[in-house]
Amino acid sequence: MKIIKIQRKTKYQKYYSSAMGTLNSRVTCIKKYFLGIPIKTIHEYRETYYGEVKTCDDCNLFI
């Protein structure tokens, strides 16, 4: 068993775009784990409707 590992997970989340309204998008989170417990999120990005990759700081996510 590794002590520290980095794992990437992808899930669908809703977000709001002023131009297109509410959309579903794939959001990928890269997290650092210590003994299986998540410590911090290293990076979080999403794929847009047009196939571009943007950071999640640019959008309003609905949770």
Results as ranks from 00 to 15, higher is better:
50 Y>A: 13
29 C>K: 14
24 N>F: 10
32 K>V: 15
13 Q>F: 11
10 T>L: 06
8 R>Y: 13
30 I>Q: 07
9 K>N: 15
59 C>E: 12
12 Y>L: 13
7 Q>S: 12
58 D>T: 09
2 K>R: 08
45 Y>L: 01
33 Y>L: 06
2 K>M: 06
61 L>V: 10
59 C>Q: 14
48 T>D: 13
40 K>I: 10
4 I>Q: 06
2 K>F: 11
49 Y>G: 03
37 I>T: 11
1 M>S: 11
16 Y>C: 00
39 I>A: 01
8 R>W: 10
26 R>K: 12
41 T>I: 10
60 N>T: 13
61 L>H: 12
46 R>N: 00
6 I>T: 11
63 I>Y: 12
40 K>A: 12
18 S>P: 01
1 M>A: 10
15 Y>S: 04
3 I>V: 13
31 K>F: 01
25 S>A: 15
29 C>G: 11
37 I>Q: 03
49 Y>C: 06
20 M>E: 07
14 K>C: 00
3 I>N: 01
35 L>K: 09
1 M>F: 12
24 N>I: 05
56 C>L: 02
26 R>F: 04
54 K>F: 08
51 G>S: 02
15 Y>L: 08
32 K>C: 13
32 K>A: 09
58 D>H: 03
36 G>F: 00
36 G>N: 02
5 K>C: 11
62 F>R: 10
15 Y>A: 01
49 Y>Q: 11
48 T>W: 07
47 E>T: 15
37 I>N: 09
6 I>N: 08
22 T>K: 04
60 N>L: 12
28 T>Q: 06
54 K>E: 11
2 K>H: 08
51 G>D: 00
38 P>R: 04
51 G>E: 05
29 C>Y: 13
51 G>C: 07
47 E>C: 12
39 I>W: 01
60 N>V: 14
23 L>A: 02
54 K>N: 06
33 Y>T: 04
10 T>W: 03
8 R>E: 15
50 Y>M: 15
3 I>M: 08
54 K>H: 15
31 K>G: 02
5 K>I: 09
31 K>H: 01
29 C>Q: 14
48 T>A: 12
53 V>A: 00
25 S>M: 06
18 S>V: 02
33 Y>M: 08
49 Y>M: 07
11 K>W: 12
50 Y>G: 15
62 F>M: 14
21 G>W: 04
58 D>L: 06
7 Q>T: 08
58 D>G: 03
15 Y>K: 06
51 G>R: 03
40 K>P: 02
28 T>L: 05
41 T>G: 04
40 K>D: 09
61 L>P: 02
12 Y>M: 14
43 H>I: 10
21 G>P: 05
52 E>L: 02
56 C>M: 05
47 E>K: 13
31 K>E: 10
19 A>L: 07
